[in-house]
Design a protein around this nucleic acid. Structure first.
Lengths: 236, 236
DNA sequence: TTAGTTTTAGTCAAATTGACTATAACTACC
DNA sequence: GGTAGTTATAGTCAATTTGACTAAAACTAA
């Protein structure tokens, strides 16, 4: 319809095009320290503009999908995973985001639990990067990732989002490691666990994690519901 | 371009159309109690769908405007006012928001300081309503207003947004009245002022507000910057 | 001058937070 | 089998913050 070879007046008349992108966070052990760190998948652009550079996964909004469905499909197509948490981040609509056309991107951010599947889906054009060591990305995607990180840190501090980066069962120390990775600072183990034990959504189980070279920690489980976004208002 | 009389296959092929809407809050003294309450302007729809019903101010995104500029213009056109605070709320993109076509609305919310001008701009098709006494609105606009109210309450509790509903100089009791109106509960005057006095962005002046039938309260002034949204990142 | 009003400062106990100590319960190694 | 190493877990204590409340200050209206 709106071919890229359209002349100027045609381009001016065309409505801004609408795209969906996703910032997908997962935890992976750092190669150096072994502690968990934040990673995210990027895709290599195979055409202009920014051909060859890395960019957030995304694509146009198809006619039969809600915004969230489009983001969810996008996520599945690039990582093979289902999101454990998915929330709208922001609609970016600056005039000069793309040099060739006016495009408005509605960006979602997601948390996934990393599995073998995720690694298997890596390829020449899809790779995972440490969130704090991205190079220069296409478009305004560096700014978008920065904002997503800010939002993640914020939700971590106030909301109850850390559990979506972990499996169904977890130890309190694992939760603390998530906080330390995302907030990038050490937390006092004893005080941290006191706070977690005071939140009613964290349920104690009678299971313990065996295998460490120390006292086996108790496993817990998160029983809360995510958020109160318009998209997620009436999810039972 | 995409006329409403296009046939089904043409409509399917057309990209979802993109609109900007704004939820504009201002304070006005309640008619009954005289205390400040939240009001917002609505416009009457002059064509289908939902012809005759009240709706949020809005319109299509023009090609030469950023999202925020479009919201700002929208606000000025319906109220004659400039926003004292403007922030993106959410992008609503459900499949069936409008019965006639797929439309994605990027909604902003704003705070304005009410002046004579705002009242003057009321007309047959633009009216202000109490935020807690809206009827049935067009489209999904009731849900949008609910979400905007939720966000306002949230920002009030954590952020520093109340001052944008007041003038440059204000008394601490006026701030408390804003909180009481938005949160809909009474706050202890003494404790509330202790908290405000502890926040460094609230600057004491040497002026006092005369005219009440009681001890004249000191005037204060807000010196902080609003937010950290992508739109407002580099505002000096 | 007095009553009525809101502003403003202050007290005190309860709850929360931050820094820290000590014991429990496991594994690994000698 | 005992002992060192490690993390889990409970608990203490002072500092800070919060909520409920008292009371004086400073104006207007009568």
């Amino acid at each position: 319809m709106y071919s890229t070879s359209a002349n100027v007046s045609e381009r001016q008349a065309a409505p801004p095009s609408l795209a969906i992108s996703t910032v997908i966070f997962a935890l992976r052990p750092s190669e150096s320290s072994g502690r968990p760190t934040l990673w995210l998948p990027l895709v290599r652009r195979i055409r202009e503009p920014f051909k060859g550079m890395w960019a957030l996964p995304g694509g146009p909004l198809t006619h039969s999908e809600s915004l969230q469905d489009a983001a969810s499909r996008n996520l599945r197509e690039t990582t093979g995973l289902a999101p454990s948490y998915l929330e709208q981040l922001y609609a970016f609509g600056g005039l000069h985001r793309s040099p060739t056309q006016r495009v408005v991107s509605i960006v979602y951010w997601a948390l996934v639990q990393p599995t073998e599947a995720a690694l298997a889906d890596e390829s020449e054009n899809v790779k995972w990067f440490r969130a704090d060591r991205l190079g220069d990305l296409a478009f305004d995607h560096n700014a978008i990732v920065d904002y997503a990180l800010w939002r993640l840190r914020n939700k971590l501090a106030y909301g109850s989002v850390a559990y979506h980066l972990l499996g169904e069962y977890f130890t309190l120390a694992q939760v603390r490691e998530v906080y330390e990775a995302v907030l990038d600072r050490q937390l006092d183990p004893a005080n941290f666990r006191r706070q977690l034990k005071a939140t009613p959504e964290i349920e104690e189980t009678n299971e313990f994690l065996q295998g460490g070279k120390h006292r086996p920690p108790r496993l817990y489980r998160f029983t809360g519901r995510p958020g109160l976004d318009p998209d997620n208002r009436s999810t039972p």
